[in-house]
Design a protein around this nucleic acid. Sequence first.
DNA 1: AGAATTGTGTTATGTTATAACATATCGCTG
DNA 2: CAGCGATATGTTATAACATAACACAATTCT
Lengths: 182, 182
Amino acid sequence: MYYKPFVQFFIGKRSYMELKPEKSVPARHDHQNCIDTALQEAERVLEDKGARMTGIRRLVLQYIWRNHCAVKAYDILGFLGDRKGSAKPPTVYRALQFLQDHGLVHRLESLNAYIGCPYPAENHNGQFLICNDCGTVKEFTTPEILRAVDIAADTQGFEVSHQTHEVLGRCQDCREQGNGLD
Amino acid sequence: MYYKPFVQFFIGKRSYMELKPEKSVPARHDHQNCIDTALQEAERVLEDKGARMTGIRRLVLQYIWRNHCAVKAYDILGFLGDRKGSAKPPTVYRALQFLQDHGLVHRLESLNAYIGCPYPAENHNGQFLICNDCGTVKEFTTPEILRAVDIAADTQGFEVSHQTHEVLGRCQDCREQGNGLD
DNA sequence: AGAATTGTGTTATGTTATAACATATCGCTG
DNA sequence: CAGCGATATGTTATAACATAACACAATTCT
Ligand SMILES: [Zn+2]
Ligand SMILES: [Zn+2]
Ligand SMILES: [Zn+2]
Ligand SMILES: [Zn+2]
């Protein structure tokens, strides 16, 4: 049994689930720098490919980068609704698809959620550490994993097209701060 | 861009998606043996834990083991409906949760689908090769992957609770038989 | 300007999953 | 075997996630 980084809350009798917000967004680094870098990189990557960074796509990417937690599609939808009057699911999913296709965001299959990629210029499969407690997602790359998969696939005659590696658990900050009961 | 093992079909003008069925179920091995072994092992594992193998749970597990493809919850629902008159989603999801909790099936996050575990006695995280072409799923275990994850997690002070490793691609059979266009 | 391509708006619906509460069944104990 | 607590199932309703299909607008190319 393991826990997913969601929090439950109530309005009246009805309960809702929401991705846990990152406990302390600004504490440990200059996150505005993360945002700026990500957006600049994105513009550059798309420019290089002759793809268009439109208003909606930029908004979605900015929202995804508001912190280091995974973002749910319908949260983005709500955000766009606030900013643009009316937005419908296809608007969000199309933007997400585009951003994924160009390597700017990754989809976290185990959360049905999305996270900005810090290395959009390099074509890669992401590997992720996901904190069940604060919701922070950290992308990492371990050549050993890729090599191990290649070997396993080769011995089976299997041709790899895409990989998903998602690791759930508890991040250092939460282990240090937490009471263990959370 | 990669493909998921779904096939599209039409009824009238409307299109539907369905998990691709395994191309040739019986060809290469005695699958009845897989089924029998899985079911016996399941009984034994549950017995050891003092957990109950009920009618519904057995039916669901049998259906999951009908071949080596991943199974969607609502396909199971349809199957149960055929066999039991009326079955509703919670019936299926409860059975699946139970089977997962006892290590008898794994959930494939990238497909929203479920697959029987050939090694239910050993507590483990699955690693999977998933064929986009025929839908066959093969569980494998590569200690190198686990070790690499442990190392990566340790260096970040991250405490691992659960891992997902899913590899999409094309299996050997499909590469040999296929025309490359599929 | 006109055509082709790409992006967005909109409606409707498909697909996956859970909450909440009622009822039944099981396994034990007296 | 009656009564009780625990476990399992039935049932209704709805939440949460995602796409098809088609209309229309904006951009780019010629
Ligand atoms: Zn940051
Ligand atoms: Zn990445
Ligand atoms: Zn078999
Ligand atoms: Zn397994």
